[in-house]
Design a protein around this nucleic acid. Structure first.
Lengths: 335, 335
DNA sequence: CTGTTAGCGCCTTCAC
DNA sequence: GTGAAGGCGCTAACAG
């Protein structure tokens, strides 16, 4: 078992002081080229590997970014993480990844853990039922920048990056309207999510601007479970006048709905068009694909998230302003 | 901006020594109950939050586990990560996640980074073209246990967890044979991967044990890109005697193949059955689903990976034996 | 240019 | 029971 050398040992081997070695290794300008070379040579010889843990400790900077997402089951977050990780590494930051599993208590624990770890910043997508943000705001008070990702609190100002759910939803709805639909329904997401509200509003706004009366029974809700999704479409199918187009909260909701219809009455399949959110990569393998899906560019959002945090980390002092980015989406149409 | 208290400040506030505070907070037996209570109360009052970075540094133990996977685009690894993260957190370990993007040089960099970070252990799925393992073996020499995950090197003994690709492939092939197929083809994965070989061998073994002659032109290869997948099926379709069943290297390969067939000649769809690996959750939404897919239980593999590593971390000394786990898979049939 | 000193926050002997 | 001292590996004044 090899042991790692420390700068101390390099110093001893070279008969110079520890600080000289330190400076030499860090290319400090005040060190002679020759000394630097000697030190570096010896460092290589002794298999010196700087101890990042020690460095983090003494510099009060870990170069780690905490990341808390609800779940890796959601392709969307996975894409985000992919972007986050790639961009973080590029800037010499490492990502500490955790899942809250939509459990607010677990979220609290994880956030506290991030505090223990002294991550330099935190990216968090809160639980769909998070209502108390104390634990998160505490981080900010301790000077750890927090970026709310996708799901952002309504009650107080904060740094965030989210996408323009309203606009996207409007686009999707409009696309279906232009395809001739008059009876459009919306399967809405969990009420706690701001995104749910925005997508619903975008939906309604599109109808309004085309002078289509909004039928309240055309708006149903799901908790995003398979069961919830099925119940939602069930309600819509039970209506005397069935909708001919459905804007679903996301792709999976739409797929579950379609699946349900397939089981119940295949003939209905051709009579209802679906639009989703997420533009899942596997959609293109589907045979009764959604008519359209909103592409949210999750990878890019991840990259941007890191870029924002790097700014905040650098700024360091109390932020004069909150960085708030609203990402625009585009509709990807399949037919 | 709140400042975090240190044990020093607690000590000062209480007029006792730092070491007493430290011991009190750690419930050291030699400290009086009353003192402990006073210390803990004051700690809470001052918003004391132990500095994990300092602790890691001084205990030479970070409680972090490095994780390097090729890509988050692959649903399989995502599921693994999910299990790894969940189990790690449960045992108070954190996961440092990185993607190699199948780039061996990047892999080297990441492994070295893990070394800098002094992670307590590393889980790695090597690049599909990794041939040199020096950087990884160096970790082991430094006392950092390494667990090869899914992709394991052939040349030397190591700790690993992988699944029984041979057996799984055999099962899948047999299932199709029992459904009456005589002309079975295999779309093989990249040659560098041991898994490719094993799946191919399982395929051949099944044929052999059913006295079906192996037709060499029925075995084609893909590099797993969409293009590669399409070329593979193209080759099979160009044969005078087309296969009626195809064991694909994984679900995505099968899906690309099916997609290709759809585009070329829909009538062929009903004449060729496909089996895949991975049992992607979205398969159930497909209308021309695979006939079967091998479920590899990635989440559980992730959990097990952590359990193994915890053993290795605890064992600490030179391992007397290599822990090698071969996970068995089961065939999930769709029709 | 190089060395000395001090300290980051915490834990662990070892005295008392 | 409690405290004093030392050190983990590294960096950053400051002094020479």
């Amino acid at each position: 078992m090899k042991k790692v050398a420390t700068i101390k040992e390099i110093a001893k081997a070279l008969n110079i002081s520890i600080s000289t070695v330190s400076k030499a290794l860090n290319d400090h300008p005040s060190i002679g080229t020759m000394t630097k070379d000697r030190v570096k040579a010896k460092a290589k010889e002794l298999h010196y590997i700087p101890n990042q843990a020690a460095r983090s400790f003494q510099q009060k900077k870990t170069n780690q970014i905490g990341l808390i997402v609800p779940s890796l089951r959601d392709q969307f977050y996975v894409e985000c993480i992919s972007g986050i990780e790639a961009e973080a590494i590029k800037h010499n930051y490492k990502v500490l990844l955790c899942q809250s599993h939509e459990d607010p208590q677990r979220e609290v624990d994880l956030v506290n853990m991030m505090l223990l770890q002294r991550v330099d910043a935190l990216i968090i997508t809160t639980t769909k039922s998070t209502t108390n943000y104390d634990h998160i705001q505490e981080l900010e008070q301790m000077g750890i920048p927090v970026l709310f990702f996708v799901r952002v609190p309504n009650d107080f100002p904060c740094h965030y990056i989210r996408n323009n759910a309203f606009d996207a939803s409007q686009k999707a709805t409009e696309y279906l309207i232009k395809k001739g639909h008059k009876n459009l329904a919306h399967i809405k997401g969990p009420v706690n999510l701001r995104t749910s509200r925005e997508r619903a509003e975008g939906f309604q706004s599109a109808l309004a601007s085309h002078n289509i009366k909004i039928n309240p029974s055309y708006i149903v809700t799901t908790d995003l479970s398979q069961n919830g999704n099925e119940n939602a479409i069930k309600k819509l199918l039970s209506l005397a006048k069935k909708p001919t187009a459905v804007i679903a909260f996301n792709d999976l909701v739409a797929l579950d709905a379609i699946e349900y219809i397939k089981k119940k009455d295949k003939t209905l399949l051709s009579q209802i068009e679906f639009s989703g959110f997420g533009n899942n990569r596997l959609l293109r393998y589907m045979d009764y694909p959604l008519t359209a899906s909103v592409e949210e560019h999750p990878y890019n959002m991840g990259v941007e998230a890191i870029d924002i945090l790097l700014q905040l980390i650098k700024a360091d002092n109390e932020p004069s302003e909150y960085l708030q980015i609203v990402h625009s989406c585009e509709l990807h149409t399949y037919r």
